[in-house]
Simulated assay, not measured.
Amino acid sequence: MSDPLDLTHLRTLVVIAETGGFRRAADALHLSQPTVSQHIRMLERRLKLTLVEKDGRSSRFTADGERLVLEARKLLDAQDKVLAQFAGSAPLRITIGSTEHAADGLLTELLGVLRAAYPEAYLHFRIDRSTVLTESVVKGALDLAVVLGGNTVEPVGTAVGELGLRWVAGPGWQLPPAPGPISLVAFEEPCGLRRRAAHKLSELGYDVAVTAESGNLDGVLAAAKAGLGIALLPFLTAPPRGVVHIHELPAMGAIDVRLVARRGLGHDLEATAVEAITTHYRAIAGRRLRGVA
Rank of each mutant, 00 (worst) to 15 (best):
M42N: 15
I230Q: 05
W167N: 08
A84G: 08
P240L: 01
G192V: 03
H39T: 13
V153Q: 13
H247Q: 14
A198E: 15
P171F: 05
G227C: 09
R258T: 11
D143P: 03
W173G: 15
R93W: 12
L265V: 08
A197K: 07
L201I: 01
A102G: 08
S2N: 11
R262F: 11
L204C: 02
T158C: 06
S130H: 03
L289V: 15
G20P: 03
L75P: 02
A251P: 13
T35W: 04
L148N: 03
T237H: 08
R45V: 12
E135M: 11
L269A: 12
P239E: 01
G157V: 10
L47W: 03
V82T: 13
G112V: 15
L43T: 09
S32K: 07
S98E: 00
L92T: 11
T35C: 04
P177Y: 12
I127K: 00
L43H: 09
R73E: 10
D218V: 15
V69Y: 03
I246C: 12
G20D: 07
E18A: 05
L204N: 05
I230A: 04
G192C: 02
V138E: 06
I127E: 02
H267S: 13
Y206L: 01
S59G: 10
L10M: 04
T158W: 00
P34Q: 08
H30T: 15
L111H: 15
V36W: 00
R46P: 08
V146C: 01
G215M: 03
A141Y: 11
Q79C: 07
L123H: 05
V292M: 05
E109T: 13
L236H: 07
A178N: 01
L51P: 00
E270L: 07
A283V: 12
E71A: 09
G192T: 10
Q85P: 10
V14P: 01
Y206H: 04
G242S: 02
A273C: 04
I40W: 00
T50R: 09
